[in-house]
Design a protein around this nucleic acid. Sequence first.
RNA 1: GCAUCGAUGGUCUAGUGGUAUGACUUUGGCCUUCCAAGCCAAUAGCCCGGGUUCAAUUCCCGGUCGAUGCACCA
Length: 574
Amino acid sequence: MIPMVDVYEKVIDLSRRRGFVWPSGEIYGSVAGFIDYGPLGAMMKRRIEDIWRDFYVVREGYYEIECPTIGIEPIYIASGHIKGFSDKMFQCPHCNEFFRADHVAEEYSIRNASSLSKHGLMRALTDQNCISCKKPLGEVEVFDFNLMFNTSIGPGGSRKGYLRPETAQGIFTDFGRLLRFYRDTLPFGTIQIGRSYRNEISPRQGMIRLREFTQAEAEIFVHPDQKDHPNFARYANYEMPLWGMDHQEGRLDPVVVPMSEAVESGLVANEYVAYYLALTHEFMLKIGVDKDKIRFRQHLPDERAHYAADCWDAEYFSSRFGWVEAVGIADRTDYDLEAHAKVSGEKMTVFIQYPEPRLEQKRTIVPKMGLLGPRFKTRAKEVGEKIAASHPRERGTYIILDEEEVFIERELFDLRDEEVLVRGEEVRPHVIEPSYGIDRLCYAVLEHSFYQDDVEGEVRTVLRLPPIVAPVKVAVFPLMTRDGLEEIARGITDAIKKEGILAEYDDSGAIGRRYRRQDEIGTPFAITVDYDSKEDGTVTLRERDSMQQIRLPIQDLPETIRKLIKGEMQFNKA
RNA sequence: GCAUCGAUGGUCUAGUGGUAUGACUUUGGCCUUCCAAGCCAAUAGCCCGGGUUCAAUUCCCGGUCGAUGCACCA
């Protein structure tokens, strides 16, 4: 093994050279935060997404939907992105530097700076000096900088639109239709893979922080009182490193415990969260993230959203960036559905039938509008509604009118007590949300598969991609470009392609060079046609990682390679 | 966004006020019976804009991108 100076540099260099990833729009000078996936990168990303679909759509049964990347304003008012996703900023008139207004105000010990209005912050800053150039600020303009890209819809531009900052909102706004699709039962889940956009102030970590990125999100709607996953047994004994908040605060290492124990001890809030933690771990291993460089870190109370019952990040270790968050798994409770219910006026609930209808006492308050009208005039309707929602006592009830408590005599309303048969209740589901940053995972896979071996004094660069992730599955070489070896090799290439497996024919340069070329792009297998092939119809099959070769008949190739890629067969047993 | 440093073929690099060195890669040819061999040839470059100058890849200013620190973000 050759010591790695800076793996990041080498991985990025290889990515550019061999067509995995490069900066977007280079001929006009690139802008930070945007990348292009080249021919091999796009294919590798697609494979990773397909494996993800295998886990969530095929195995879990959560169907995929596709929503627009542009959303209208009310969506993001409800989601909180209009408010919570923006920072109040200002620019120093002298040094032109931008600052967060509330942070600077805090520097000057102004209380509650983060809750001050734009105007309030402006006034607070007027008498202060710039924290950078030290000159007096004067009346600076405090403006909102929102991390969402905005646009306008239609020729008049009358409707404001935003590029979505996450794919999740599309699933939430479709809740009603999805619920009917799943025939009004809980639990159900829906997934979406797509682009999201955040106008980061200064993205500077290559593929790690992008302004346009691909998310794969699942929104799983569960009954608030039933957070036991029906298939939890699958992962009950699954073990992986969990770094709970107590351990983080006590500066202790992550613990490795079975998921069942993690739930029982309260480390993980419930089976649903635990299930997707384990599933995520399994998924990350499958796509080629290094097992020894994964941990699951629980959000500390101050970084966790106030509504979240529990939240964990799957992190991987990068030699360049340290621990990188790649997946977030949260129990978001009913926060999102409730928020959309409030703004949209839709119910966003599920009617859950009781096993047996229940006979319940029900008290209805009926205001006597005939008496309220003359007394309260135009306010009568409002008063009536408030009476109906109040809690009457024996002599009457109290309501709040114009911030004053008003007593309403018993004569002004009727009470009807009746027995009703209640067949069920409206329940607002809780949402379990695993959210994957596909680009960050792509980088993890590239960095963790990157190896430089020493082969007889020469450096051999090899991407040890799992065969299912590798863009090209098999390379076919004629040993010599003569005596009909090419024809045999081309025939083999075609036969393998017919199986739907991507094979690449290459007869350029010395055989060793061709092996190296394929090693560098992670092609797991290589077939070489030599002179014996002409005699007995066999070829050599070489495995990328071990560089071992075996001989086998040409007609067995497509089937053997298919099994090797799927992991149904080990190379040394082929 | 600010400060410091940097940017030369696909990659790594030499060098310069008068259009650029070498290596690797790639392509074609020769040679070659399994891990970047050899020979011949070809392709290909001074980040962008402005200024100074007869002339700018070189000097100056601004920008973009990258690295580092701050800020921001997770």
